[in-house]
């Protein structure tokens, strides 16, 4: 059985967020919810200042506190290491959300894609209402560009009252495709693979660089690893001084 992991090469990352927008698209994620996200930081003071970008997503922890705390086993581990969620079993208690130290689980406070239910056009007779557009294009099933592929292992659009999060695109993995954020990254900064295959691309990178994971000390054993630096700038060597 494979054990899936992702390596994020921060040097290759250009901070463009194509991963996050593509994820929205692939997984029909509503506005305000970020299965794929980022932590940014502006460090220093002018003119000695830089902007740093760290892509984040569900870490698919081997020892996942979200799974541990779920009262209904809606949040569960798959044999391949993916932390999966079953909205059928979810009672919306948000226990997982509280337990996740990475803030990557989101709760659906409202019906998904509410935007597309609005019946008012901006110009009567001349433009569509969102509702009319969604109905004409896709029978009112979420957004007009809703991806039916997502519906293979989860509801295509998750309802109000349950949580949702990144699934490593389990629906794609099932048919032999890599997660969509990985495919969509223009910089190839995300590398996906099987930790159980000694010669997999992820293992090669983890053996070559000093990888680190988020909040390692919590012992959650994340399966998202980071290598290299977002800003590998050169600088003039110095011993400093007093």
């Amino acid at each position: 059985m494979p054990k899936y992991a992702m390596v994020i090469d921060l040097q290759r990352c250009v901070g463009c967020g194509a991963c996050s927008i593509a994820c929205r698209n692939e997984n029909n994620v509503p506005d305000g919810i970020y299965w794929s996200n980022k932590i940014t930081e502006t460090a220093g003071t002018f003119p000695n200042v830089r902007f740093h970008y760290l892509p984040t997503l569900c870490n698919h922890c081997s020892d996942a506190p979200c799974v541990e705390g779920c009262p209904t086993k809606a949040m569960h581990k798959l044999d391949n290491g993916i932390t999966m969620h079953d909205p059928d079993k979810c009672i919306g208690c948000r226990y997982c959300q509280y337990n996740c130290p990475y803030e990557v689980i989101y709760f659906n406070w409202q019906d998904p894609h509410k935007f597309w239910r609005n019946p008012k056009p901006v110009i009567e007779g001349g433009t569509s209402s969102p509702k009319e557009m969604a109905q004409t294009v896709n029978n009112g099933n979420g957004a007009p560009y809703s991806n039916p592929g997502r519906g293979k292992t989860l509801p295509e659009n998750r309802p109000k009252g349950v949580v949702e999060k990144c699934t490593f695109c389990d629906h794609r993995i099932k048919v032999g495709e890599i997660p969509y954020c990985v495919e969509a990254c223009p910089a190839d900064a995300r590398i996906f693979g099987d930790l159980d295959k000694p010669d997999s691309k992820v293992n090669r990178l983890l053996g070559k660089f000093k990888p680190y994971r988020l909040k390692e000390r919590l012992g959650t054993e994340p399966n998202v690893y980071y290598i290299r630096s977002f800003n590998p700038a050169h600088y003039q060597r110095t011993k400093g001084g007093i």
Partner: peptide
């Protein structure tokens, strides 16, 4: 979390509808 959970009624029935793909 549990206290909060009770304030929101999960609309699980919506699942069946939402999972239909065209």
């Amino acid at each position: 979390a549990i206290a909060l959970g009770t304030t929101v009624k999960p609309t699980l029935r919506a699942l069946a509808q939402a999972s239909e793909t065209t």
